[in-house]
Design a binder for these strands. Sequence first.
DNA 1: AATATAATAAACATCTGATGTTATAAACAT
DNA 2: ATGTTTATAACATCAGATGTTTATTATATT
Lengths: 237, 237
Amino acid sequence: MFKTARVNRISQNIVEQIRETIISGRLKPGDRLPSEKDLSAEFGVSKASLREALRALEALGMLEVKQGMGGGAFVTEVDLETARNNMFNYIFFQNPSIGEFTQLRTFIEPQVAEIAALKCTQADLDYLEDNLNRTREKMDAVPFYYELDTKFHHHIAQISGNRLICFVIDSLKNAIVQIKLQLELDRDFSIQVYKAHMRIFDALRKRDPEQARAEMQRHIVEVDERMKHYCDGDTLF
Amino acid sequence: MFKTARVNRISQNIVEQIRETIISGRLKPGDRLPSEKDLSAEFGVSKASLREALRALEALGMLEVKQGMGGGAFVTEVDLETARNNMFNYIFFQNPSIGEFTQLRTFIEPQVAEIAALKCTQADLDYLEDNLNRTREKMDAVPFYYELDTKFHHHIAQISGNRLICFVIDSLKNAIVQIKLQLELDRDFSIQVYKAHMRIFDALRKRDPEQARAEMQRHIVEVDERMKHYCDGDTLF
DNA sequence: AATATAATAAACATCTGATGTTATAAACAT
DNA sequence: ATGTTTATAACATCAGATGTTTATTATATT
């Protein structure tokens, strides 16, 4: 009926207070908190407890603590990498199937590609073209290749101008890459991906929304099929 | 050219080692780590540093530390609430517009409603009907009303059977609620939402995918327009 | 005068050891 | 048997000492 009453952990209390202050806007990125000595005095706790709280906030990506004179605890924006890792931590335990990734991607990415075809600038096309050139060169450099792959999708998402979409696509892609790294994918796979990216790029260059959508859809489904084949089923972790 | 060389923070190193062990599967949810005394000996660090690491892992939702005999640090699955809060921390700083929320939701939720219309069981319909009954009663109990609102959307997502979709919808909804709590919404708004939920429910009950999709789409757009009206523009935090 | 080097101080990083609190389990009394 | 007390393992918190990092200021060298 009731939740178990929360343990009154001093560091947790401090974390909540500081987080509240940030969310309420009274502390902004770049702001520096008082020194450990002053903070522990203000909260009326020992330095050790205070430091546990700072470490927790650091793990959440909301603080950055620097040593040395002029150092201290600074409020920071949670960055993409931290957010993506946090999301991965959750996804990891949910252990979704490849099909679940694919389904969500097909809901978002083809529509994003459609919008991108309408909104992309010459600079966007230049970026993507460079990405493709480098992908062709680095086809066999596995970690680097994945990085370019992720950036290709991320950039198309960026063209949409929707930061939430960027984040979701990026996090999904990141999780998929973590999976792929455990698989042993062959060169054929890389080539298939490269060709698909080329077709998407062509559609964007032609500013053809319908084709961009169709090619993105096809790409995602192709990757799905390949991965299921390598995975010998649909389970991941 | 190079990234700044990693600061060698002892607690950070421990966090990474333990996280690695969990991600690799050598430690599973429910497993208990050695006592603080033993762990600090094993890592060759002081108790204070070890505790900072445990606090960080606790903040990430991967550990739960219990006091008392038979206590200690237990590996836990990252739960929905933690993941949702972490995602909110990121979204907060991105400060997306209402339009960005709406766009992403329209990519996902109407399609999910369509699937739900095909897959929903009698138990699902019962759950949703109960949800609607309670919503009607608690129309004015603001926090409770939002909870029911969130659960309505979450349950429809659950019918799809896609855990990633569940998570994304839940996190978006949660972020929107955080926003709504800062707005002053009137009773009209609640009634409009209730009616929209009713229409969606009807479509599910009739197992009409096309109507379910259309009603969900309409609902999301309606909420968008209302919120923009109250927000006096499109900015949020 | 300009530059390199050294001293200073602010602030975090880590360690140690003592004391308090909690929860389980065993011992004990009724 | 049942309820209460006691012992104990393990975390929670604190206080203080010592080390490290970094920016600034002072000093010495060329």
